[in-house]
């Protein structure tokens, strides 16, 4: 399957990532649940790229998005940047094992990593900058991540067909 603009799946993912990032850092208060969902999708996409489209440019992508989220969302540098870089490190070291997982294991691993990532960001923002831990937000993220996971992976698998 070829895309309309002859883009590769990696390029399509990056365009989606950029659009989601732009929407997430410019929230409209009436549609907060959509922003929470997009925040979850953003993390799924980051992990997915790290596992299935690992390449040199990802170092800069992870770094820039981590820094961007920190600067525009919390006006401090740390939680997102540190988490993204650590996730990249974990994925680099364990990628060879991860890709040998069966489909169910990989599915749960992605969900686990995504939820852990967001929770670690929340804890880091609490440890580094004393921002309160919003339990209600954590529950929302947990539920949204579970609900969104399957349809998202179906969409990702369709995007992967683009050559």
């Amino acid at each position: 399957m070829r895309s309309f603009l002859h883009l590769t799946s990696f390029q399509v993912y990056n365009i989606i990532l950029l659009i989601i990032f732009a929407i997430v850092v410019n929230p409209i208060n009436d549609l907060l649940i959509i922003y929470y969902s997009l925040y979850c999708v953003f993390h799924y996409l980051i992990i997915y790229l790290g596992i299935y489209h690992f390449r040199k440019s990802l170092y800069f992508i992870f770094f820039l998005y981590g820094l961007g989220l920190d600067l525009l969302w919390i006006n401090e540098i740390g939680p997102h940047l540190l988490t993204f870089v650590f996730v990249l490190l974990i994925l680099q070291f364990f990628k060879k094992y991860i890709i040998n997982f069966n489909y169910l294991r990989i599915y749960f691993f992605l969900i686990f990593l995504q939820i852990s990532m967001i929770f670690i960001e929340i804890f880091l923002s609490f440890i580094l900058f004393s921002y309160p831990i919003n339990l209600f937000f954590m529950i929302k993220v947990f539920v949204l991540s579970l609900v969104l996971s399957y349809p998202l992976f179906v969409i990702f698998s369709k995007i992967d067909l683009i050559k």
């Binding site: 799946s9 990696f10 596992i51 299935y52 489209h53 690992f54 390449r55 040199k56 170092y59 680099q92 990628k95 890709i99 040998n100 069966n102 489909y103 169910l104 990989i106 599915y107 992976f153 179906v154 990702f156 698998s157 992967d160």
Partner: peptide, 20 residues
């Protein structure tokens, strides 16, 4: 679809500079 994920990854593996 998850089985398909496994194959897509192996084709995109590239060497990464160790200093990065």
């Amino acid at each position: 679809m998850f089985k398909r994920f496994n194959t897509s990854s192996s084709t995109k593996k590239k060497s990464i500079p160790s200093f990065l």
